[in-house]
């Protein structure tokens, strides 16, 4: 741990504490405010300051633990560097993915314990947003793939959360797990299993084979090939898009060096926020389309 990292850590911690104190003070001051919306508006600035400084602090800690990004020289790697844990050689992205899953699981448990009992019949704040998201994905799945099972929207929702979490891990200075071909391919394989499972369950084994040979038995190899191509295309699409975005961001950061303050932030709005969201949407809609094709 060199002196610069120490200064960064201390500065972000101090800023966080300052904003926390400010927020508590504002909260205390505005408790008597009759209009809750106005009170919330007054607390907004210290709240955002708190979130940003906490994010910076976490990024510093993560980079301290993992060794952080290397120097200024850019090297393009298809697969991420590996680390040795006992007898296992694990890719860094796999490790990131597992830590991410742990974080999401802990957040879910915290949510279940602390936020869920406070839910009311009249939604408000967090509950409102969550209900809207769940309702949206439920309706979306039903519209795109038909009424198959209540587990399907849940699976798609968790995939979306995971992919967005991967994009967030890039903001913490890690190589995102989605820029690993194996990770995207395993997600695509899940889709492949799902489409075969629902196809067989809805039409029976014989019906599935018959629908593959539907216009004429001659065409069956082609249909099977196109079914096998579905996961490959899904995996390569997600992987290529994510790795492309990462390379563009790396190039920008490396070419600007120490001056990369404003430009990378603006580019990151597209490459780290909008682009992963669109790719998540496309991954889900394509999976659902494949599933519907298999069940129809």
């Amino acid at each position: 741990m060199n002196i610069v990292t120490g200064i960064k850590l201390a500065a972000s911690a101090v800023v966080f504490v300052v904003f926390l104190v400010l927020w508590c003070k504002k909260r205390h001051d505005t408790l008597s405010e009759p209009d809750p919306k106005k009170a919330k508006k007054k607390r907004r600035l210290p709240f955002f300051g708190m979130v940003i400084s906490a994010w910076f602090f976490v990024a510093c800690v993560v980079n301290l633990v993992t060794g952080g990004p290397k120097g200024i020289s850019l090297e393009l790697e298809m697969f991420s560097p590996r680390v040795q844990i006992g007898p296992l050689s694990v890719a860094r992205t796999t490790l990131t993915a597992y830590v991410l899953m742990l974080v999401i699981a802990v957040l879910c448990v915290l949510f279940r314990v602390f936020a869920y009992p406070r839910f009311r019949d009249e939604p408000k704040g967090l509950q409102n947003a969550l209900e809207a998201a769940v309702e949206f994905i439920d309706k979306f799945t039903r519209d795109t793939a038909g009424d198959l099972s209540p587990a399907l929207p849940a699976y798609m929702f968790s995939v979306a959360v995971m992919l967005i979490g991967c994009a967030a891990s890039e903001l913490l200075g890690q190589r995102p797990p989605t820029s690993d071909l194996l990770f995207t391919f395993s997600l695509a394989l899940c889709t492949f299993f799902l489409l075969n499972y629902y196809g067989v369950r809805k039409k029976g084994l014989f019906g599935r084979v018959k629908s593959l040979a539907s216009p004429s038995p001659m065409i069956m190899p082609m249909r099977m090939l196109s079914d096998v191509a579905a996961p490959v295309s899904l995996a390569c699409r997600l992987f290529g898009n994510m790795l492309g975005g990462m390379i563009v961001m790396d190039l920008l950061k490396n070419s600007l060096g120490g001056y990369a303050v404003g430009v990378t932030t603006l580019a990151g709005l597209y490459f780290n926020l909008f682009h992963p969201l669109i790719q998540t949407y496309i991954f889900i809609i394509l999976s659902l389309t494949f599933i519907r094709e298999a069940t129809e």
Partner: peptide
């Protein structure tokens, strides 16, 4: 969006193959 993703995919495949 679906159509755009499918149209884009050829470029993405060539990018992956180039890599």
């Amino acid at each position: 969006l679906l159509g755009l993703a499918l149209a884009e995919s050829t470029a993405i495949y060539s990018f992956v193959i180039a890599l």
